[in-house]
Computed example of a mutant assay.
Amino acid sequence: MIFTKTTEQDSHYNNLENMSINEIITNINKEDKTVALTVEKVLPQIEALTEQIVLKLKKGGRLFYIGAGTSGRLGILDASECPPTFGVSHDLVIGLIAGGDDAIRKAVENAEDSTTQGWQDLKAFNVSINDVVVGIAASGTTPYVISTLKKCNELNILTGCITCNEASPLALTAKFPIEVVVGPEFLTGSSRMKAGTAQKLVLNMITTTSMIQLGKVKGNKMVDMQLSNDKLVNRGIKMIMNQLKISEEDATQLLTKYKNVRKSIAAYGRE
């Protein structure tokens, strides 16, 4: 199969500077509507990778995301939301970006072109065959990501990827590739748009599904969430009230004592 980088192909729209605000946002929305349908086409690929991730996490392994630019930031975003949402350790899902933490806010010149730094960044976490490493790159050609997955493959560390070009070098490197081909962007080459949205949708699926499979959800509630602000405390109180059919006062007392929704519910029967 010939590799065609659709993320770099010309937009289906032209003369953007002559469009009204309404025309611009309407056309962007029109393109965005296609993303979820494209993700739907690769659900089997998402399932295959997620199944492997769940197996590794259940055995005490970790999930690493590695990327550059927008892709790297999306991986870090997804990883950073797991501890507050599911009450897991910050060391369970880890996001790495080319250029280090400085690149989260500002682009670091040429960082994504390194063929050695990705593995050095990953090695600092003592990555092993117990872990899973998922490369994220809309183009599927980022040297920082591809070289890291190649090294992982050599060491029998399980690899996956999320990319938006079919048969890309990255997809051919990863053992469990996810290829969400969203087509040309509204603004030619701006893969922070549809490609970024697609990647975020897939990341949501991977970690949410994994955490449910790990028992971090009860019913449809985040019973292990960190109670880090008043909104989440109030949400926790309501969960306890609804689950145990008790008053707000009693639920508040339980949560104040046990500092966790799951523990509060479990303790109620013993008190």
Rank of each mutant, 00 (worst) to 15 (best):
F186C: 01
L77A: 04
Y13I: 15
S247V: 14
S168L: 00
L16D: 10
K151T: 05
P177G: 05
D91W: 08
L55P: 11
V88L: 15
L96S: 14
N110K: 04
D32L: 09
L122E: 01
F3P: 09
E185T: 07
S20R: 06
A137H: 02
Q9K: 13
Y268W: 07
P44E: 05
K216E: 13
I76P: 02
I178N: 01
Q226T: 06
A107Q: 06
T141M: 08
K200E: 09
K221H: 04
S20N: 11
T209G: 07
N242W: 02
S89C: 08
A103S: 02
C161Q: 10
I21V: 08
T163P: 01
A137V: 13
L96D: 01
A48F: 00
S114M: 12
I28Y: 14
F125D: 10
T7H: 10
V182H: 01
S190G: 10
M222Q: 02
T142R: 07
A111P: 03
I240L: 05
E271Y: 11
F125M: 03
A251Q: 08
D102F: 09
I265L: 02
G95Q: 11
S128I: 00
V202I: 13
G196A: 03
L201G: 04
D32E: 05
T6Y: 03
S190D: 06
A111C: 06
M205V: 15
N15C: 02
I66L: 12
T38K: 04
F176S: 00
K30Q: 15
K263A: 15
P169N: 00
V181W: 00
T141C: 07
V182T: 03
D113V: 13
D32S: 02
P184C: 08
C152K: 04
E179C: 01
I129N: 09
S247N: 15
N234E: 04
K231V: 12
D91I: 09
V35N: 03
K59S: 03
S168F: 04
A111Y: 03
T7R: 05
N14V: 15
L92P: 02
E112C: 13
S147V: 03
S114Y: 04
F64H: 08
Q226L: 10
L203F: 09
I24E: 02
L149H: 06
F3C: 12
I25C: 00
A251W: 07
S128H: 01
L214H: 04
G189F: 10
K59L: 12
S247I: 15
G118S: 03
D250M: 10
S168W: 06
V133I: 10
S89Q: 04
D121H: 03
M241A: 01
T116V: 12
G215R: 13
K263W: 14
E31I: 04
L63R: 03
E47L: 06
